[in-house]
């Protein structure tokens, strides 16, 4: 049994995929971080002080964790969702009544989205109160603020998709605020966002595209830069 495992681990196929051995020595542990795409953002060694939970409260990391949950559940939800009126609403009902674990998926997606907004905000506060925005990390703070706005936009664009009264009027109230912008700019922006003067099918499609493609891509790019700069500025 152990022999067979050894042979697999030593096989060329295995070694072509994992260029390091099992992390059982400090060397191979370092290699694990070094050669692994997902771990390479981390240094091979970290200060013991900085991995204490209360040092960062793990808020940024958990926000990212929620983002992953949202991507996974979101992708699954997309399989059952049509961004059209009124099918969008009936698809919610179908999720509830006929899709296996459909309600559960939607709940996960919904609560994770709300939690992410809250956690990102808390993360921002933590960074401020620990003074972590100070040079040389000024620009990463700016990216963080943008990411906070992006998180809210992600949540907000998703809010319309179930096409119930809550969605419709939540979005109507929000987009009415845009109209307050002076010189007719607000009206133009609102029209562009909704694809019309009121929240209708065009708005649903636009919000769907924003929610499922545009804003996530922006968020992923910004997150990559954000994490990379954390690492470059000496963080974990």
């Amino acid at each position: 049994m152990k022999n067979a495992l050894d042979r697999i681990v030593r096989s060329q196929v295995w070694r072509s995929i994992f260029r390091h051995g099992l992390p059982d020595s400090n060397r191979s542990r370092a290699e694990t971080v070094f050669y692994n795409f997902f771990l390479h953002l981390h240094p091979t060694k970290v200060r013991k002080r900085s991995i204490k939970f209360t040092y960062t409260w793990g808020l940024g990391g958990m926000s990212f964790g929620l983002f992953i949950v949202l991507v996974v559940t979101g992708a699954l939800l997309m399989l059952y969702y049509r961004p059209s009126v009124p099918q969008a609403y009936w698809d919610m009902k179908d999720l509830q009544f006929v899709v296996s674990s459909g309600t559960f998926l939607r709940n996960m997606h919904r609560w994770a989205a709300h939690a992410m907004v809250a956690l990102v905000f808390l993360h921002m506060l933590r960074v401020f109160y620990t003074g972590s925005y100070k040079p040389p990390k000024e620009f990463n703070w700016v990216i963080g603020v943008v990411l906070f706005v992006v998180t809210i936009l992600l949540s907000y664009t998703g809010y319309l998709l179930p096409w119930d009264q809550l969605s419709f009027w939540g979005i109507s109230v929000g987009t009415n605020m845009i109209h307050a912008m002076p010189f007719g700019v607000g009206d133009k922006i609102a029209f562009l966002l909704l694809g019309g003067n009121i929240v209708g099918e065009n708005a649903l499609v636009r919000f769907y595209v924003l929610h499922c493609f545009v804003i996530p891509v922006v968020a992923i790019v910004l997150m990559a830069i954000h994490f990379w700069r954390v690492r470059k500025d000496g963080g974990v």
Binding site: P86, Y89, N107, M108, R110, D164, L166, F168, I198
Partner: peptide, 15 residues
């Protein structure tokens, strides 16, 4: 949370 609290779904949108 997701097992016990259902995401809200109200009436169908009515402009």
């Amino acid at each position: 949370v997701s097992l016990f609290v259902d995401a809200p779904l109200e009436w169908i949108a009515n402009p």
